[in-house]
Nucleic acid binder design. Structure first.
Length: 660
DNA sequence: ACACTCAGAC
């Protein structure tokens, strides 16, 4: 079960009550020199500007890949015509250029030509060919060349291992590494860098083993090996060990820093990622696209808008171009942190957009309940000839589901199949959600029965959620049973089912589900809400009485509650705490965490400013209603981030149109 | 004159 927005676990130090991002992070001045690291997607552009030396006084660098009218290569043609003599260096240069430009076809031409030349025994060129195939995304061909070599050296092994390592074929890379050792080759720092990358993808045990080999061979001081080690421990979630390796490195570069920062980002430790960003700059290292991308991702995962903006400021000052590599993450960060306007702005300013840029923009729209805009942008994307992928359709389907665009959603599901994209289980879940939310419960059930894939827990959860929404007790109970079989430890379905019973007045059944849940040791994730004020994060749990301002918060809410009642607010107590009487229920309800957060925001933020609150579970119906009234009462916009979407409350209504 | 480490959308 994946969520659109990562919930932040309680164990995260970022959620200590008040202190966060201490002020000194914000006094670091940005370094204005431009960093030069080019992102993979932009290499092509950079090469285009390159003009260089000549070969034998005849061929200029820019003519290396020049084509002949019949599709051959100009340089090879010259050789065939006897207009120039080849040599090993020329073959290497040609291959290298093919590699840089990712030109597999031309690479094959050079390869074939090389085989017919008198240089065909040169190991160095053969190694370059292996590298060319590997870098052009064809590890199979690299392997074939390698296998057919009568004689191999260290570089041959390293090149082919790297080929698999970089093409997400970690197991094969590790296998070759073993074979290499059996053949009596001792790995050097080049080999170990690649093998560590592969090991990191396979698992911690493998990673530690390779670490041992690095120590034995004395390569741990190499920056490449060191960075790979830091990265390996980061990916295994072992941040303490990553830090130990990092601290032990005599010579560091940006990559080491980035590997460490990325590790914290993957663990949603925004505070650590931001802190390291500052330390990196203080240590006089230039933040690169990798750095920014990681830090934005970290901010996105906890919705840290202010920190994200601050980092964005550094990016602007750095002079780095807003390329897709970093822009996509920035866009995503703004979307997830609640500022759809900034997300749009970033999208508009992207130098070049790839599929991920479009998908991120669609996701942002979908998360903010802008179904119409999502569909429009999707159509624009197609109009511009950008090929949508599976993720694109997931975004669009989700948007349709969240906005009640039933027919459009079903149409796009069919379109997806027509475009020969294979829907996976997540698409089926979304369609069940789409039908279910729209009240077509019978159709949703039918759809599940006819699915070609075996239904998973997520499928039944979607149906269960729809049953809760449309108060269908029988089907809901059935769906819940299926979930209990497949995913017995998730608290969500238990609570949904008990709420279904409760809202039908069947308190006894509701209590039975709760009891069953307790008996089987299923624990409910405690609900909490939080908000940022001036770089501090304030967190609240329901009925919280441990906050320093608890009395003021309580008074504020009581005051507000009275006023919104005058505007017509009627507390809805139907789905909570059925075992207490009506009056008590209402009292408890008042202290849902989002209401405490809202009262706190009203006390501590300037009049008229937008209030941004985040919550780790779905907002309840009563709070949703209350928030609408409050937005009208105080004349302010309130943005509430739910588990997987945003609610924009303004002037008494919500952007979700009460459909969520 | 050949080979290595760091990012992202669901």
């Amino acid at each position: 079960m994946k969520r659109h927005i990562t919930n932040t676990p309680f164990s995260n130090p970022i959620f200590k009550r008040i202190i966060f991002f201490s002020p000194h992070f914000f006094s670091t001045s940005a370094n204005s020199a431009a960093a030069s690291s080019a992102a993979a997607s932009d290499i092509e552009e950079d090469i285009g500007a390159f003009t260089g030396s000549t070969f034998g006084g005849i061929i200029q660098d820019k003519d290396l890949l020049r084509k002949t009218p019949n599709g051959g290569l100009y340089v090879l043609d010259l050789i065939d015509k006897g207009a120039m003599d080849p040599n090993a260096t020329l073959y290497n240069q040609l291959l290298k250029r093919c590699t840089q430009m990712g030109r597999l076809k031309e690479g094959r031409l050079v390869h074939a030509h090389f085989l017919n030349s008198i240089y065909c025994k040169y190991i160095a060129v053969q190694n370059t060919i292996i590298n060319m195939y590997a870098k052009c995304g064809s590890p199979e061909e690299a392997r074939k060349v390698f296998d057919e070599m009568p004689e191999r050296d260290m570089v041959s092994w390293t090149a082919v291992i790297t080929g698999f390592s970089q093409n997400d074929r970690a197991q094969e890379a590790l296998g070759l590494f073993l074979e290499m050792s059996r053949n009596g080759f001792v790995p050097n720092e080049f080999t170990l860098g690649s093998v560590l990358k592969a090991a990191a993808a396979v698992g911690e045990i493998e990673g530690r083993q390779i670490h041992g080999i690095c120590l034995k061979n004395g390569h741990c001081d190499d920056v490449y090996v060191g960075s790979a080690l830091v990265d390996m421990y980061s990916r295994c979630g072992r941040m303490e060990e990553a830090k130990v390796v990092f601290d032990g490195l005599d010579s560091k570069n940006e990559v080491c820093w980035n590997a460490l920062i990325a590790g914290h980002a993957r663990k949603s430790e925004a505070e650590n990622a931001v802190r390291l960003f500052s330390e990196m700059k203080k240590a006089d290292f230039e933040a690169t696209h990798f750095t920014y991308s990681s830090v934005f991702a970290a901010c996105a995962s906890v919705g840290a808008l202010e920190q994200g903006k601050w980092i964005h400021g550094h990016l602007v000052k750095s002079g780095l171009k807003l390329i897709a590599f970093v822009g996509n993450t920035l866009l995503d960060m703004y979307g997830k942190a609640g500022s759809i306007e900034d997300a749009r702005r970033v999208f508009d300013r992207l130098v070049k957009r790839d599929v991920v840029s479009w998908n991120s923009m669609l996701t942002a729209c979908a998360q903010h309940g802008l179904g119409g805009e999502t569909v429009e942008r999707f159509e624009e994307m197609r109009g511009r000839g950008i090929q949508p992928n599976e993720v694109t359709f997931l975004c669009v389907l989700t948007a349709c589901s969240h906005s009640g665009l039933l027919d459009k959603g079903l149409y796009y599901f069919e379109l997806m199949k027509k475009l020969k994209l294979e829907p996976d289980i997540s698409h089926y879940v979304t369609v069940v959600d789409l039908l279910g939310r729209a009240g077509q419960l019978a159709r949703a059930e039918e759809f599940i029965k006819e699915m070609q894939i075996k239904p998973t827990a997520a499928i039944w959860k979607a149906l269960l959620g729809a049953c809760r929404m449309h108060k269908n007790m029988d089907l809901g109970a059935y769906a819940a049973e299926r979930v209990f079989e497949l995913d017995p430890y998730d608290s969500g379905p238990h609570i949904l089912l008990s709420n279904i019973y409760a809202s039908a007045g069947r308190w006894r059944d509701a209590a039975k589900v709760r009891k069953m849940m307790n008996d089987s040791g299923v624990r409910k994730e405690p609900a909490c809400s939080w908000l940022e004020i001036e770089n501090n994060v304030h967190m609240f749990v329901a009925n919280d009485d441990g906050h320093p301002q608890r009395n003021e918060i309580r008074r504020m809410w009581e005051n507000v509650a009275d006023k919104i009642r005058e505007l017509g607010y009627v507390p809805d107590t139907s789905h909570v705490l059925w075992f207490v009487d009506q009056q008590e229920r209402e009292v408890r309800l008042q202290y849902h965490s989002e209401k405490l957060a809202l009262a706190f925001a009203l006390l501590n933020t300037p009049h008229g400013s937008t209030i941004r609150i985040k919550k780790n579970i779905r907002v309840c119906g009563d709070c949703h209603t209350a928030f609408k009234f409050v937005s009208r009462l105080v004349g302010r916009e309130i943005i509430l981030r739910d588990t997987n979407r945003f609610h924009h409350f303004r002037g008494g209504s919500c952007s979700c149109g009460d459909y969520w």
